[in-house]
Design a protein around this nucleic acid. Structure first.
Lengths: 226, 226
DNA sequence: ACAAAAGTGTTTCATATACACCCATGC
DNA sequence: GCATGGGTGTATATGAAACACTTTTGT
C-alpha cells in the first residue's frame, strides 16, 4: 500500500549474503552452504536469504545467522551491496553482503548439517560462483583492516581466552605470523584486557592465563580519547 | 520475466543517494537539492534517484551525477546501504549511498540551478531528514579515512594544481590545519607528483608551481609494492 | 630428560611531529 | 616598502620491529 506512491518505478528482490567467520585449531574458517537450486546445485555458496517485506537489512542478516547457526546477537557488519543487473540468473536481485564473527563453540552443528553447511579454511577456499568470490574477498579485506584498530576479533573467541589464542586469531586473519613479545607488549598497554586469574591447560602442558575483555571500559576509554 | 523465478518473494524500490563533494575557496562543499515532494518540500536533501530495471547501482549513481551536474567519469565510491523498513515515508525503499569527488570547475552550474541544487560548506551543513544525516556522516568518515592512504582527494582538483591547493583540500576534509613543511616533505617522497614547470599566479603574487599526478606511475608502484 | 607451549625486555630503526625564516611579486 | 602567499631542513619524540632465553609441566 505504501508502495503505491512510487507507481511505475521498477522493483527488485533484495537479499543478504553472509560471510561467516569462525576460529578453530589455529585456523580461520568460513561457513559455506551447498547450493540447492540450479545452476551449480551442490556447489558451495555464501549463506544468503531474501529480505522480508517489513525487515531491515541488518535484521535479515541476523535472521539468516539464526536460522542456519542457531545463534543470536552475532557480530555483523555490512561489507558492500552488489547490484549488477545480471548478477543472479534467477532474477533481478540486489544483495547486501555482511560479514559475521562468531564463537564456533556456540553454534548448532546439527543445524548447519541440516542446511548443508560446511566450514572451509581461509587457507583453502573453493571458487565461488556469481559475485560471491568478490564478496568474500572484500569481507576479508575489511576484516584485516578492522582488526588493526578495533577489537572485533574477540568475537571469534570465548569470553575467556588465552593470549596465544588471540594471537592465532590475528595471524589467521592477517595470513602472517606475528612476534609473540611485541603482540603481548601491545596488549599489556591496554587496560581492558583483564587477567581473570584462571588458567587453561587444554592447549599446553604449562597452564596459560585466561583473560577477558572489558567492553565497557573499552568503550569509555575510546569515547574519552576522542 | 526473469523475476518469476522467485515468485512470492517481496520486492522493493531501490535507490541511490549521492554525497557530492567539491572544493572551492579553501573549503570543502557538499551539493544538496531542495526536496520537491512531501514531506519537507523545499528543504535540503541528498541527490537521489531510483535504480532502473536494467541498471547497476554504480550506473545509477553515475547517471544521477550526470543528470544533475552534467559530469561523466566522476569518482564514486559506495558508502553503505540503508534499508530500515520505515526509512522512506513514500514506500519501502532500499538506498545505497555513494560519495562523489568532483572538480567543481567542470560542473554545469545552470543544470544544478535547474534542479534546485546548492553547495553547502562542510563547516556549516544543514540538518537533513530521514537517514540522510547518517549517510552524510558516514561518507565524511570514509573520505577522511581514504585520504590517509589513497590519493582520491586529487579528484577534487584540476589536473594541474598547486601544493597549497592540495593542502587546503586535505585540511578541509580532515577539519584541521596541517603543517606546510611536513605536508610538502611527504609529497616530495612520492615520485608520481610531477612538477609541470608551469606556474600559477591566480592565487598569489609570487607564482606557485603547478603539479600533476601520474596515476599510471602510482598504480604501477602500488602494484609493485604489494 | 625432553618435548611443547608459556612467559618476559631491550635495542634499533623508521616514521611523525614540532618548529622559523627567506623569497618573489603585485600593489 | 610592505603585504601576501611560496618555498625550504633539522632536531626530537614516538611508535614499530627485531631479537633469545627461562619456566612449567605432561609424558
Amino acid at each position: 500500500m505504501a508502495n503505491t506512491l512510487y507507481a511505475g518505478v521498477p522493483q527488485f528482490y533484495v537479499a543478504v549474503d553472509c560471510i561467516i567467520f569462525a576460529y578453530e585449531n589455529n585456523d580461520i574458517q568460513v561457513l559455506l552452504q551447498k547450493r540447492k537450486i540450479e545452476p551449480f546445485v551442490g556447489e558451495p555458496t555464501l549463506l544468503g536469504g531474501f529480505v522480508g517485506a517489513e525487515e531491515s537489512l541488518d535484521d535479515a542478516a541476523h535472521r539468516v545467522l539464526l536460522e542456519r547457526t542457531g545463534m543470536k546477537d552475532v557480530f555483523l557488519e555490512q561489507v558492500e551491496t552488489f547490484g549488477e543487473p545480471d548478477r543472479d540468473p534467477g532474477g533481478r536481485v540486489i544483495s547486501t553482503a555482511y560479514y559475521a564473527l562468531l564463537n564456533k563453540k556456540l553454534h548448532d552443528t546439527r543445524l548447519i548439517q541440516k542446511f548443508g553447511c560446511e566450514w572451509y579454511s581461509l587457507k583453502n577456499l573453493p571458487m565461488l560462483h556469481f559475485d560471491h568470490s568478490k564478496m568474500l574477498a572484500k569481507a576479508i579485506g575489511i576484516l584485516r583492516d578492522r582488526i588493526g584498530y578495533s577489537p572485533v576479533a574477540l568475537n571469534l573467541l570465548p569470553a575467556e581466552f588465552t593470549l596465544t589464542q588471540l594471537q592465532r586469531v590475528y595471524e589467521g586473519i592477517l595470513g602472517m605470523e606475528l612476534d609473540k613479545r611485541n603482540f603481548r607488549k601491545r596488549l599489556k598497554e591496554m587496560p581492558y584486557f583483564i587477567e581473570t586469574g584462571k588458567k587453561d591447560k587444554s592447549f599446553s602442558k604449562r597452564a596459560a592465563a585466561l583473560y577477558n575483555f572489558d567492553w565497557m571500559m573499552y568503550k569509555q576509554l575510546k569515547y574519552y580519547h576522542l
